[in-house]
Design a protein around this nucleic acid. Structure first.
Length: 240
DNA sequence: AAAACCTCCAACCGCCAAGCG
DNA sequence: TCGCTTGGCGGTTGGAGGTTT
């Protein structure tokens, strides 16, 4: 079985040149993403499929946000990591414009030591700010599919985020926070039980606890996650 | 000025799961 | 059911650039 890159002929490794980037970009623009095994041949590149895919996903793809993470992004990353552990692709899927590699690198270089320090403090009996978040109790929620808030959900890879919708009169129908997470139905997309009744759709949470998935800090709680507060506030403020 | 050390991030590696014949 | 291919993921590494001595 061939698992890694095919080494039966000479493949280029290391840093990508501008010329290679151009070739890859043109290829993806022409044929679309996917079928990565065909990409090196189509693009005329001496790179393996994985290398092409990674280069596209981490660097060439449109809408990739570069530069420092801002405070909100870091905060969100910390919360998501607390919940999901090292599932970088899931975390990145919740931070628009950031790739899993970006998130992983940022975590490893900036946050890992910080979090470790906080844990040590916690063990020593000093409550850190990070652990003072409000525990959100699980509540079944019913959200109308007619809700304007969901009207403009756009797909961004695995990320669903919304942008302000326009009613045609130039009026913004959504709260003035955009792009914004609409994570309740999507964040744990395989863990959410969705029940549709007429135009209402009811989500209930459940999978994580039963399946024994633990937050990295060992707290087996899906709801120790203040971002939900924010999301529910957002939904409540949209005149349900 | 230059050597040593450190930081950061792009890229690679190996593994796993899904899909398919 | 089995074996192979492919896509995708997280962990790790190499090296460029920056900082310190």
């Amino acid at each position: 079985m061939r698992q890694g890159c095919d080494t039966s002929f000479v493949l280029r490794k290391g840093a990508w040149t501008a010329e290679e980037d151009t070739l890859l970009k043109k290829c993806i623009e022409k044929f679309g993403e996917g079928k990565w095994h065909l990409v090196p041949h189509r693009a005329g590149l001496s790179r393996c499929r994985k290398s092409c895919r990674l280069r596209w996903l981490n660097y060439l793809r449109p809408n990739i946000k570069r530069g420092d993470f801002d405070e909100d992004e870091v905060d969100l990353m910390l919360r998501l990591h607390k919940l999901l552990g090292n599932r970088w692709s899931l975390i990145a899927g919740r931070i628009p414009g950031r790739t899993a590699n970006d998130v992983k690198n940022y975590w490893n270089t900036h946050l890992r030591s910080r979090v470790k320090q906080q844990k040590d403090q916690l063990k020593a009996g000093e409550p850190s700010q990070q652990t003072m978040g409000t525990i959100v109790k699980p509540q079944p929620r019913t959200i109308s599919k007619n809700l304007n808030l969901y009207r403009d959900i756009i797909a961004h890879d695995n990320t669903n985020f919304i942008r302000p919708s326009d009613d045609g009169n130039g009026t913004n129908n959504t709260p003035s926070i955009a792009p914004v997470l609409v994570s309740p139905p999507t964040m744990f997309n395989d863990k959410i039980n969705e029940k549709q009744v007429d135009n209402e759709v009811e989500w209930s949470f459940g999978g994580l606890l039963e399946e024994g998935v633990e937050a990295e800090d060992g707290q087996n709680s899906l709801f120790d996650f203040p971002i939900d507060n924010f999301m529910w506030d957002l939904l409540d403020s949209s005149h349900l």
